[in-house]
Design a protein around this nucleic acid. Structure first.
Length: 272
DNA sequence: CGCATTTCCTGGAGGC
DNA sequence: TGCCTCCAGGAAATGC
């Protein structure tokens, strides 16, 4: 499930391979993954790519004319840059051909993801595309502390894209472990010291994961088809029943915010 | 406001 | 071998 580090890896690679290329063809194989004006999609032909970037978990390809093609990858969404004559894999929903014989393909078996196209200057908001909170790698410690001041489970706050953009189930669990904070604590009840630890833990886990080109558990691949390697560095996620890498106590798994949640009962005690 | 529940969808795992 | 059921999970909608 692509979260911020995976989206960052994808965006960097697209930025390197697609920038300055001109669209020569667009083919939508599955209409319902595209949430926007289909006519405008055909209008991309002839447009030149200015850059590719990430915001939260989303990947954007920006064109010189100002249009932005936005990909929300959901949990199984994948972007691949391949030769135009490469075999088309199952669940490929969109193909964007470029000069030089390369093609960008959006593939998403479970179809939780979506593709959006926004005109120059238009706000990036649409069906299943809510407004995004600040970037976890850019927000100041001070501002982050303020975000947590609500009587809501800290794990739910971290995973709410409108609160802070980019953390999903994996990195929320990993950030909480690094900070030594139990996932079911209420945000408003965290001390200044704990909030600071969470800010640092969140940033350090995201930076480390980007360095390892993300986490591949099942589906995730970068646009070259290569997996990430950060799963080897996970301290809690999907490590239930195994010893904590910090203290040796068995990692536990519970449901919080409707999601499987992994934590160390010793390092992340609930307290009294 | 917060929170649990349901919906979407498919592949993989486990049961028999 | 093959069928069946269950589950994961991002985000939004619904009901309490």
């Amino acid at each position: 499930m692509p979260e911020l580090p995976e989206a960052e890896t994808i965006a960097r690679e697209l930025d390197g391979t697609l920038t300055s290329r001109v669209v020569c063809g667009v083919s939508l194989l599955r209409a319902d993954v595209f949430r926007g004006d289909r006519g405008a999609l055909a209008g991309l032909v002839g447009q030149r790519v200015e850059k590719s970037a990430r915001r939260g978990k989303r990947v954007t390809v920006q064109f010189e004319g100002g249009e932005r093609l936005v990909f929300a990858l959901g949990m199984s969404g994948r972007l691949a840059v391949v030769s135009a004559d490469a075999k088309v894999e199952v669940h490929t929903h969109l193909r964007v051909g470029f000069d030089g014989g390369v093609e960008l393909r959006f593939c998403d078996p479970r179809r939780f993801g979506g593709v959006y196209l926004f005109a120059k200057g238009a706000a990036v908001v649409g069906e299943r595309l809510g407004a995004l909170g600040p970037e976890p790698l850019e927000i100041s410690a001070q501002a982050f502390h303020g975000l947590l001041d609500r009587r809501r489970q800290i794990k739910a706050l971290l995973m709410d894209q409108a609160v802070i953009a980019g953390l999903g189930n994996i990195y929320a669990d990993e950030a909480l472990h690094r900070a030594g904070v139990h996932p079911m604590r209420l945000g408003a009840e965290l001390s200044e010291v704990e909030r600071r630890a969470l800010w640092r833990g969140m940033r350090s886990v995201l930076r480390a994961a980007i360095k390892h080109r993300g986490t591949t558990l099942v589906d995730y691949r970068d646009p070259d088809g290569a997996p990430g390697s950060f799963q080897r560095k996970h301290r809690v996620y999907r490590r239930d029943g195994q010893p904590c890498r910090t203290c040796g106590v068995m990692i536990d798994k519970i449901v919080a915010n409707g999601r499987s949640t992994h934590f160390c009962p010793q390092c992340q005690a609930l307290g009294e």
